[in-house]
């Protein structure tokens, strides 16, 4: 361990360290973030959901997009795997099908950051358990 010699060094060190804690900081206030859920059931994994998830996580970290990626179980759209659900705060969740790494980046850049709609949205007609009260 090297000694920290000044307050500036301490601040720089903090900046280098904080990205590893980001995932925990984000979990503190998930409501204010874009929540992306990757369907990670057997069929999803088989069609490459894990790669998609890695891409999402890396892009979000690199561009400092205020979003958090979690895993979900099977959503039932096995014909369109890998699928991801994107919940922008204040909006209804949107499900995208047939997502590969390139589409994942498109979704982040166009839908999440710029708010444009993309093709390939699966219309949802279900209620989640959180809505049923």
């Amino acid at each position: 361990m090297n000694k920290i010699k000044s307050l500036d060094d301490l601040r720089k060190m903090k900046q280098n360290l904080e990205h590893e804690m980001n995932i925990r900081e984000k979990s503190n206030e998930p409501e204010s973030l874009v929540q992306i859920r990757v369907a990670m059931a057997t069929c999803g994994i088989a069609s490459g959901a894990r790669t998609v998830m890695n891409t999402l996580v890396e892009k979000i970290e690199k561009d400092k997009i205020p979003a958090v990626v979690t895993q979900g179980g099977c959503m039932g759209y096995c014909y369109a795997e890998p699928t991801i659900e994107v919940k922008v705060p204040g909006k209804d969740p949107v499900v995208f099908g047939n997502v590969d790494s390139q589409r994942a980046i498109d979704i982040l850049v166009k839908y999440v950051v710029n708010g444009e709609l993309l093709e390939g949205i699966i219309p949802t007609n279900y209620q989640t358990i959180n809505e049923k009260k």
Partner: peptide, 27 residues
């Protein structure tokens, strides 16, 4: 985290299930 899942009264023998189900498959 990040999904804030809060498992209680976890026993050592539950660990394999947590990893296989939650971490691997998101259930």
């Amino acid at each position: 985290v990040p999904d804030n899942t809060f498992y209680t009264q976890v026993k050592p023998e539950d660990c394999a299930e947590i990893v296989r189900e939650h971490i691997l498959k998101g259930r």
